[in-house]
Amino acid sequence: MKNYYQIIKIFFISFILINAFLSNVFAAGSDAKITKMNFSFDGIFGVIDKASARRGLQVYNEICAGCHSLEHVSYRNLIDIGFSNEQVKEFASQFEVMAEPDSDGEISMRPAIPSDRFVSPYQNDNQAKAMNNGAIPPDLSLIIKARAGGASYFYSLLKGYEEAPEDKELSNGYYNIAYPGNVIAMPQPLYGDDVEYLDGTEASMEQEIVDLISFLAWTAQPELNDRKSMGFRVFLFLVFMTTVLFISYRKIWKKIKS
């Protein structure tokens, strides 16, 4: 038994040490101030708040979609956050996509259908560059997973616009305390009351940011709710299996040990 504890001890200590080093690495080396926040989807039982994600879609659609694409998400996926089939159809139909070439080889536009991906604000990357001073606004489908700090980073970023200190050089950028380097090309997108929520929620800046993050956390990890509930069941099963195997093991080894 002594041996057993020793193994667990060494295993965990090295695991924790290495992880501490790694997280140290990812957080290090920037003058960015990130406020650690708690979101509905944090923790073992945390799930995406679907009502909040639906409001977040509205924020994305009315504010962000002008510049940012969402290329890995399809309209049909919106059913996952509680929209009905009809609502999704109606939402999709306000956008236009290129149709298949017709019998004369002409390409016309058609309204989008649920199986289409979210329509990008740009035809291609070069157009995106040309419209934004040479910087392509990043696609938002995976953005929560694609930045160190994740959701907390975006919360801090969206709230992080401040008056620049006098000595700071801002060429074509805006001062933001959460952005690495503190000069960001994106102007402050949310001020509060930027949208009028369909469900009547008051659109304070805080509310809009949290809702948008709920939505983007969902676009980045649409499997999150399933993953956590399945994970819990799998974990319980494995704990049970480990226990019975341990008892079996002790029984079998009794003959050898005595």
């Binding site: 079996s248 093991y249 079998i252």
Partner: peptide
């Protein structure tokens, strides 16, 4: 003896 021990460790 070791199949069960390995199984337990695996689990």
């Amino acid at each position: 003896y070791y199949t069960i021990k390995d199984l337990f460790g695996l689990s």
